[in-house]
Design a binder for these strands. Structure first.
Length: 882
RNA sequence: GGGAGCUUAGCUCAGCUGGUUUAGAGCACCUGCCUUACAAGCAGGGGGUCAUGAGUUCGAAUCUCUUAGCUCCCACCA
């Protein structure tokens, strides 16, 4: 069969993916084999594939495919996350386009729209992952809002409530006015923003009358002054001590508020005088509690001002700020303003400025759970890769505050709490059960008297169960229940691959849930990927337009090319700077592999041909090199140094297999395309092994070539074929061979230098060590007519002499030698070795070195010394020859 | 404000518990080649006072501290 010179991924990738699916190679059910399991970090159901997913899922696929090839029963569970806030926002926007307001329809109607949307768009990202080659067990595809997953969430809620680990309370929460919901502390992103600090005049009040004296107060939020309930100074502040107890008037609305004293206030910031706005600032709220001050909330849920504000009612908070500044200015209450850089919280999901808001929410007590979850990492049961994240993890776990889990949304699991007409609450898995509980409080209650809490739980409250619930959805909330067969087999999972930004959101909480319900860790290793950034180190974002479309990239470079490009430059925990030339390198490598195959497949295996000595030696060498490579790769894998594994294989394939091995055994021009059977069989075995080693990284091309290199049956696949055995490895022989390579490189350099064409055969004389068995290869690769061992330099006119190791090689060059140039080159080399010798000598003449350094180190130095000396002697001799 | 980490060739990074020829790789670069597998290729080559200053040590890219620059995490001084 004639193969094209350029590898075309588009004709192979689809073909083999379908083939794999058809034969259910990705599917796993429990059996007697050791297992390897991974759960995917479920991408948002609204999501489309971006470079972060590409990296993350390529890493998972590499680990998963490798485990599968090792004969483990391998299970990679895929699925998506319902992502309450993001999805709800999308559906709301979609409805708005249709002219429907969320407030105009019922909860059930809204959810119908949302599910319809999910059915239509929800699987895009999973389909895209198939393009990448992800070997997920698609028969297990899950969704965090599937009925049994939701059941698990509710059971968990009820269990924790009954245990006293979930409570309801009025707290200052992070309110996202755009999403219309509370969010957890972790979902608030702080960014530095240039703001203004406004100095406002609060005039003293004399029985409600404005005095001419005032107190200056600095604030960044002048629109909240209507919610002020006091001014506050530090009790030790002499400037203000006499004023405590006096009253001032709020500008514009002239409401009288007291001056109080509290240690919280720092004297040297601003004016040392703070306005207290309990409803709109967490610290003020605390102060308000201490001083029994009222709470005046002037904001609506959407961030507009309400009637309590008295002025600017209905205006958005930021519009109100602009307007009130003008009003303050006009009223003479704005003293000055200055630039001020401060941190402001933004919603992770909607990017709206977070508003601290006092409200009734549900919380999970984290202190006990966090302590347990910390232990798993501290004692090494859960390994973080790289382990620098242990510190970060510890810090968070030690300071974690309670987790606000209620969200004022409809898309998600509705909180299983039911309110009695009197305000009491019962928690139960259904309205019927709730009624039974409620009747213990009030026996007259009947169906319909109870009102379910309208909120849903935080999405992470379902995804923290993911590694458990995908296998046994009945286990969460029921620690006493026996695990089902699936959970018993697959749990704990082996590796989790995720980004460090959800270490606390997700990873830590999965460990908590794992401990709570299974008494065990959910996974053994957490591989934390870096972030994919652009070439300039910027985050990829839609607004910058620096985020390439992965599908488009795969169209250009092939899935294998893109996978390779990503894997080559990723090390755990380090960000990767995306550069398309890396994909190009990946594509080029595919082409290299393809063409190596073209070469090999053009040969005719001939039983009657005798194996040449050069081929025999090449086979011997490369077989040993491959054994060593397997061990090295194994070691690197155990350390999760995936990019280094790939680089190792890249070099072995390209440099050693193609540039050396194949070039040596390649049938010479006059031999036609016939090759002896022994060499041919070994070559195919090597190729087979290399394809196996490369398969986890580049699944498509390796399958394509593996299928083509021998007769295969329907149902065969490199994925499930046993790894060919490899032989022993003799280090000394490998070293001999690398000296042979050095020799040939020197000869090639000489040719280039002297412009000696490849066809001109040269004579080589050797003084020193050079194994006889390698002479043939030297002749072939160096273009030599003879190799001869000598004890002295040959007397053949101009002789070029050079060193490899401590062996001296001579090549007669007739009239081609420029003696002057040669002499200066030799002198330079001599100089180098003399300097080197001086350094070694200095060490060896140092008494303390000899006394304190370990014996083997001293021995190495002695060896260096004698090597350097023999080299110097050889160089001197060469100079004499000239 | 607190904590963690990074700084090695033009770029991206290895260099693990200090000692293996006075620092390694890939890419990029330079030179010569369309040599019948591959120009997405072949052969050869150049390039770094290991951010800074000091210390520990017989010996430091590697350990300690200083300074500078970057990154991330945590923290709501208005």
């Amino acid at each position: 069969m004639e193969l094209p010179a350029i590898y075309d991924p588009s004709v192979t990738e689809n073909k083999w993916y379908s083939y794999w699916l058809k034969h259910r190679f990705f599917h796993s059910t429990p059996d007697k084999r050791p297992k390897y399991s991974v759960v995917i970090p479920p991408p948002n159901v609204t999501g489309v594939l971006h470079m972060g997913h590409m990296l993350n899922n390529t890493i998972q696929d590499v680990l998963v495919r490798r485990a599968r090839m090792q004969g483990k029963n391998t299970c990679w569970v895929p699925g998506t996350d319902h992502a309450s806030i993001a999805t709800e926002a999308k559906v709301v926007a979609l409805l708005r386009d249709k002219g429907i307001q969320k407030t105009d329809i019922t909860r059930d109607e809204f959810l119908k729209h949302a599910w319809a949307w999910k059915e239509k768009h929800g699987n895009i990202i999973l389909e895209q992952l198939k393009r990448l080659g992800a070997s997920c067990d698609w028969e297990r595809t899950n969704f965090t809002m599937n009925p049994d997953m939701s059941r698990a969430v509710l059971d968990t809620f009820i269990y924790l409530y009954n245990k006293g680990l979930i409570y309801r309370g009025v707290r200052m929460v992070n309110w996202d006015p755009q999403g219309g919901t509370a969010v957890s502390d972790e979902e608030v992103i702080h960014r530095e923003v240039s703001e203004k600090l406004y100095y406002l005049k609060y005039y003293f009040s004399h029985n409600g009358q404005r005095s001419t004296q005032y107190l200056s107060v600095a604030t960044t939020r002048p629109e909240t002054i209507m919610a002020d309930v006091a001014l506050c100074v530090n009790p030790g502040d002499e400037r203000y001590a006499h004023l405590v107890g006096e009253k001032v008037l709020i500008p514009l609305i002239n409401k009288e508020i007291p001056i109080i004293a509290d240690d919280y206030v720092t004297m040297d910031f601003g004016t040392g005088c703070l306005k207290i706005t309990p409803a709109h600032d967490p610290n003020d709220y605390e102060i308000g509690l201490r001083h029994k001050l009222p709470v005046i909330d002037i904001l609506n849920l959407d961030g507009t001002l309400n009637g309590e504000a008295r002025i600017l009612v209905g205006e958005d908070r930021f519009v109100a700020r602009k307007k009130i500044l003008i009003m303050l200015e006009e009223a003479g209450c704005l003293e000055k303003e200055e630039s001020y850089v401060t941190q402001i919280g933004f919603s992770e999901r909607t990017d709206a400025v977070i508003e601290p808001r006092l409200s009734q929410q549900w919380f999970v007590k984290l202190s006990i759970l966090a302590k347990k979850a910390l232990e798993y990492v501290e004692d090494g049961q859960v390994r973080l890769i790289p382990d620098k994240y242990r510190n970060t993890y510890r810090h968070w776990m030690e300071t974690a505050r309670d987790w606000c889990i209620s969200r004022q949304l409809w898309w998600g699991q509705q909180i299983p709490a039911y309110y009695l007409p009197g305000g009491e609450v019962v928690v139960a898995s259904s309205e019927e059960e709730a009624l039974v509980l409620a009747r213990k409080i009030d026996s007259t209650l009947k169906a319909g008297d109870l009102k379910q809490d309208p909120d849903v739980v935080d999405t992470w409250f379902s995804s923290w169960l993911w590694p458990i619930s995908v296998f046994d959805p009945e286990k969460p909330g029921h620690p006493e229940k026996e695990p089902n067969q699936e959970l018993a087999y697959y749990y704990p999972t082996d590796d989790l691959v995720t980004a460090p930004d959800i270490l606390f959101f997700w990873v830590a909480r999965m460990i908590m849930a794992g401990d709570l319900f299974c008494g065990q860790k959910p996974f053994s290793n957490v591989y934390l990927t870096g972030m994919v950034r652009d070439k300039m180190g910027r985050k990829m974002s839609k607004s910058l337009g620096n985020s390439p479309d992965p599908i488009e990239l795969m169209n250009i470079y092939g899935a294998d090319g893109v996978r390779m490009g990503l894997m080559l430059c990723t090390s755990a925990g380090n960000d990767i700077l995306f550069d398309e030339t890396q994909m190009e390198q990946g594509r080029n490598f595919c082409n290299k592999i393809w063409n190596a195959f073209r070469l090999v497949s053009s040969w005719q295996r001939d039983e009657h041909l005798e194996q040449e000595e050069t081929s025999r030696q090449a086979v011997r060498w490369f077989g040993q090199l491959l054994s060593a490579t397997r061990d090295e790769a194994e070691d690197l894998f155990s350390k999760y140094r995936l990019s280094e594994v790939l680089m190792l294989l890249y070099k072995r394939f390209w440099d050693d297999f193609c540039s050396w091995y194949l070039e040596i055994i390649k049938p010479a021009g006059n031999a036609g395309k016939r090759i002896d059977a022994a060499t041919y069989d070994s070559t195919l075995a090597f190729f087979d092994l290399l394809l196996h080693l490369l398969h986890p990284f580049m699944p498509f091309i390796t399958e394509e070539l593996w299928q083509n290199m021998a007769k295969r049956k329907e149902g065969d696949s490199i994925m499930v074929s046993p790894l060919p055995a490899s032989g022993p490895c003799n280090q000394a022989e490998l070293e001999d061979f690398s000296r042979l390579q050095e020799l040939i490189v020197s000869i090639r350099g000489l040719r280039q230098n002297r412009q000696i064409p490849g066809k001109t055969l040269l004579k080589l004389y050797v003084k020193g060590q050079f194994p006889q068995i390698l002479h043939g290869i030297a002749r072939r690769m160096g273009g030599l007519e003879s190799v001869q061992m000598v004890t002295e330099a040959p007397q053949e006119g101009n002789v070029y002499a050079f060193l490899v190791g401590t062996t001296v090689f001579f090549i007669p060059l007739w009239n081609l030698l420029d003696k002057e140039e040669e002499r200066s080159k030799l002198n330079a080399e001599l100089e180098y070795h003399r300097k080197f010798l001086a350094i070694v000598d200095k060490k060896l003449s140092n008494e303390s070195f000899l006394q304190r350094a370990p014996a083997d180190v001293v021995a190495i130095e002695r060896k260096k010394r004698s090597d350097a000396m023999s080299r110097i002697a050889a160089l001197k001799q060469q100079l004499d020859l000239l």
